[in-house]
């Protein structure tokens, strides 16, 4: 069980006893989760289980009622999105957080614009950087001067992903990154996850597709009604085990960590 977590050293992130309620409803109720470098942890659960709320507390988008966040073993002070960025936590939100009226480069750099020596926004430089990163993520992408409103779901998704990748995240949160995507784009995201993982990032992946989770993730944590059902190693359990956790809230005999 806890045998090899020790050997992996300090986790990238550790969330302890996270709690958040909205007007008496416990959206997240005492959840403890961790994430190691080069690891993908799937976060599963039915609709409204509290996955997004838990991740939003980590990304600073929501304040937490209780709980501590440790980054690289040290207590982290995350109270807003800026703090999270400081700890190199990047998030791809379930409902794409893009400003529709701005182009890809402006969205990628939103809040972290490159500026010239005179302090003015350097659009040309930002476009050049955006072209570079997009050439890697989505080589077919050409529409650098259109507001992102005019882009397809997949193109918009690649803008959102490029933002997380460009700024060298240590910890990446992906909240249903493939929900709006076609087969081809989904495969592209899967490849990207593999690549980022091999670079040593830690990734939290929220996905309703158990099959994808089994393929991409090292561990899976299941939530139900705001509580953590359990965390399992995916290669020691079956899809049915995980389904049981999601639906019945039942932890399997083996594979739990």
């Amino acid at each position: 069980m806890a045998l090899d977590t020790e050997s992996r050293g300090t986790p990238l992130v550790e969330m302890r006893n996270m709690r958040k309620s909205f007007g008496g409803i416990d959206a997240v109720d005492g959840v403890t989760l961790d994430l190691y470098p080069g690891e993908v942890v799937g976060v599963l659960g039915h609709n409204g289980a509290g996955k997004s709320v838990l991740m939003k507390m980590l990304s600073g988008a929501l304040s937490r009622d209780e709980g501590e966040i440790y980054v690289n073993g040290e207590l982290a002070n995350i109270n807003n999105p800026r703090d999270a960025r400081h700890y190199r936590i990047e998030t791809i939100y379930q409902y794409l957080a893009l400003a529709d009226n701005l182009d890809a480069a402006s969205n990628l750099f939103l809040g972290r614009e490159l500026v010239t020596s005179t302090g003015l926004v350097d659009d040309a430089q930002m476009e050049a950087e955006t072209r570079k990163i997009m050439a890697r993520l989505n080589p077919n992408f050409q529409r650098f001067h259109t507001p992102v409103k005019g882009l397809s779901g997949g193109q918009r998704q690649s803008v959102a992903i490029s933002r997380a990748v460009y700024f060298n995240a240590n910890i990446l949160i992906m909240d249903e990154p493939t929900a709006a995507l076609g087969v081809e784009e989904t495969r592209m995201v899967a490849n990207l996850i593999e690549e980022l993982k091999s670079q040593g990032l830690g990734i939290f992946l929220i996905d309703h597709d158990i099959h994808a989770v089994m393929q991409l993730c090292d561990r899976a944590s299941v939530m139900k009604n705001g509580k953590l059902v359990g965390t399992v190693k995916v290669d020691e359990v079956t899809e049915d085990d995980i389904l049981g956790m999601i639906i019945l809230g039942k932890t399997p005999e083996k594979g739990t960590v």
Binding site: N80, R82, L96, A97, A99, D100, N101, L102, L110, G111
Partner: peptide, 19 residues
């Protein structure tokens, strides 16, 4: 100026971007 326009396009996204 960039943030003014971003806010008009998507206030939530702008806030999530740390503004």
């Amino acid at each position: 100026g960039r943030y003014i326009f971003a806010t008009g396009g998507n206030p939530e996204a702008t806030e999530l971007a740390g503004i």
